[in-house]
């Protein structure tokens, strides 16, 4: 899940009877499964919540280039290098669609960058963990993209048209990403003992942060209840986490790996796995900026933006000169 703990500004979810006629007709359209489009009226809270969620998602795609980019130059074969380049390029492309979707809500890409760089806007906690070995690239595809898909499949049905359509495109590419991650690991577990140990080590480090991607339990959260009423969110964090664990454990077994959770056990009655609680203190520390790579990740993005100012200014200046030249030519022709 690339958007975690998105606030809605709602003190509580209003009933239809408490809404004024405009808001009530908006809510009724959502209840009927209609899509909301950019130019249409929407409650301010709906607009702000979507901006927070979509921009957080976009920032995650952009910051997410860094941990994977860390291994492009060291990819072990030309084919793996090409696949990883294609994947990271897709992610930058996802960032682009998502920023465009957010822009339809009345915020510019530059403003969203400003919020990222100042720390006001967040990105997924997962990208503050380091990629230490090549197996981490496999683990990111398998677990991180796997968890992201779990969240993004329902987002294809989100009530806001541009976000829903962006997610439909993104989901197609994400499933390819997950397969390439799994494929990296398949190859490695069939390899040397050192390679297999590298894969187990990657799972040990990425398992809990992947479960944290869904965010803490939100059954009692007013923000989640409001997001669900607006059909921005469709499932609770715990539901998605359970689905992810149930899907992933058999895959780990297939790879011959051990999930680093002593409490993990099949529960026949509920038809799913019981599992331990992630360390939520660690999660909140990472969100607060204290994860292993927060400073590097945000520092890299700020530096890229600051170092690139002359480039962007140069292109703007050229465009202005060209416009002036055209205007001059037209004036001369008259």
């Amino acid at each position: 899940m690339y958007a975690q703990m998105v606030k809605t500004d709602a003190p509580r979810v209003k009933t239809l009877d408490e809404m004024d006629p405009q808001e009530r007709s908006f809510q009724e359209r959502i209840d009927q499964g209609q899509k909301i489009e950019p130019k249409e009226w929407m409650p301010e809270g709906y607009r702000k919540t979507l901006i927070r969620q979509i921009s957080q998602h976009a920032h995650s795609e952009i910051v997410g280039q860094l941990p994977e980019g860390n291994w492009i130059t060291r990819a072990p074969t030309l084919e793996r290098k090409a696949i990883l380049l294609a994947k990271v390029q897709d992610e930058a492309g996802h960032g682009l669609y998502l920023y465009c979707a957010a822009e339809t809500l009345g915020i510019s890409r530059d403003e969203m960058y400003e919020q990222l760089h100042s720390g006001k806007a967040k990105y997924s906690s997962i990208f503050n963990y380091p990629t230490l070995t090549w197996a981490d690239i496999g683990a990111i595809g398998w677990l991180v993209d796997g968890a992201a898909i779990m969240n993004q499949v329902p987002l294809q049905r989100c009530s806001y048209g541009p976000y829903s359509r962006a997610m439909i495109r993104i989901c197609k590419e994400e499933s390819f990403h997950q397969r390439q991650g799994f494929d990296i690991l398949m190859k490695m577990v069939k390899g040397t003992p050192a390679q297999k140990a590298m894969v187990q080590d990657a799972l040990n480090r990425w398992w809990w942060p992947s479960l944290m991607m869904f965010g803490p339990s939100d059954d009692a959260s007013v923000h989640s209840a409001q997001s669900m009423a607006w059909k921005i969110k469709q499932n609770s964090n715990d539901e998605l986490r359970q689905k992810f664990v149930d899907q992933t454990v058999p895959q780990a077994e297939y790879l011959g790996l051990t999930i680093p959770d002593p409490k993990l056990e099949w529960n026949e009655e509920k038809g799913g796995y019981d599992f331990g609680e992630p360390d939520w203190n660690e999660f909140f520390e990472v969100l607060a900026g204290n994860g292993p790579c927060n400073a590097e990740r945000l520092g890299a993005r700020r530096k890229a933006w600051a170092d690139g100012a002359w480039f962007r200014d140069g292109l703007t200046a050229y465009a202005e000169k060209q416009a002036a030249r055209r205007a001059g030519n037209e004036a001369a022709a008259e």
Partner: peptide
């Protein structure tokens, strides 16, 4: 070109550089 990944001055440039690098590796 791959060394730029995630560090380019605009998102469109990140995409274009990755794309060029991908062509060259191919």
């Amino acid at each position: 070109l791959s060394e730029w990944c995630g560090h380019a001055p605009a998102l469109e440039e990140d995409i274009a550089l990755a794309n060029t690098a991908l062509d060259l590796i191919g």
